[in-house]
Amino acid sequence: MRDFSYFRAASTEEASRAMLDAGAMLLAGGTTLLDLAKCGVSEPDTLVDITHLAGLGDIAVDANGATIGALAKMGEVADHPGVKAAFPAVAQSLSLAASAQLRNMATIGGNLLQRTRCSYFREPGVFPACNKRNPGSGCSAIGGVTRNHAVLGTSRACIAVNPGDLAVALVAFDAYVEMGRRRVAIEDLYMLPGETPDWETVLKNGEIITGIGIPASVAAKNSTYLKVRDRQSYEFAAASAAVGIEFEADGKTVRDIRVALGGVATKPWRARAVEQSLIGTVLDVEAVEKASRLSMEGAVSHGGNSYKIELAPRVVARAILTMGGLA
């Protein structure tokens, strides 16, 4: 690890200013940043510590929705009664993520900006080719061990999964991030890799996430997050689904449905085709299974990850059927 300097910001503005220096990086919980610094992926010259900023850790839930400060801890949000009641999928996506120790340390802002777990990305001394780390150098993963790589949203340049769970739930319920006064829908926060996988979000230089907002909805209140993986806990998703459903007054017909997928795509993946095909219908097992397969439209296998194309629609279907009382 190289030497770096440490700067404790007294205000968001001060932090933003400090971030304009090349080599400056924001430090929140540090669970991604320090990890990547040890791997030699992140080489900060200055760490700008924002964990002492006041007012960025609040969690508030009312009839309109939730607002959560960027410094709220994953564990706090997962356990927050208001979040659990109005946004079960959001709370579950957090409690099923990482480990208790990490959840007690990691922040919501940092969580949204966690980096991929692509093994090739994480070992720069061994795999110099990685377009995400080093634009134009190539992609070591393609042709290698791709069990945990994406099948959706990939490009010739990069097939790395966006591994976070929270963002999947947020994408399903039209949440947004706030950078001071600028507000961006979570779905638009993340960029597809295309030819520039090093460019992961639309955040501008020096911009700091101050919080997130999740509008209240019936679908969000009646929601679940289903995460499937080999190990029961402390593993990223092989495939996951955030699903919320609002039924018509008859209690059967779907008025609104939200479906998003994790563990399979280069960004948190909203499956609008699945939603569209089920809106206005009465759920039944066959129709749900058929609709769920639409989530894999455009999916591309890279060998070891082909099972995801089979698995993910089953996860989506189970989550929908669970919320529809059919599983």
Partner: peptide, 14 residues
């Protein structure tokens, strides 16, 4: 390539 404890999985309590 899974030469770390995040990627080489051993059982957890769960």
């Amino acid at each position: 390539i899974n030469n770390n404890m995040g990627d080489y999985l051993v059982p957890t309590n769960a």
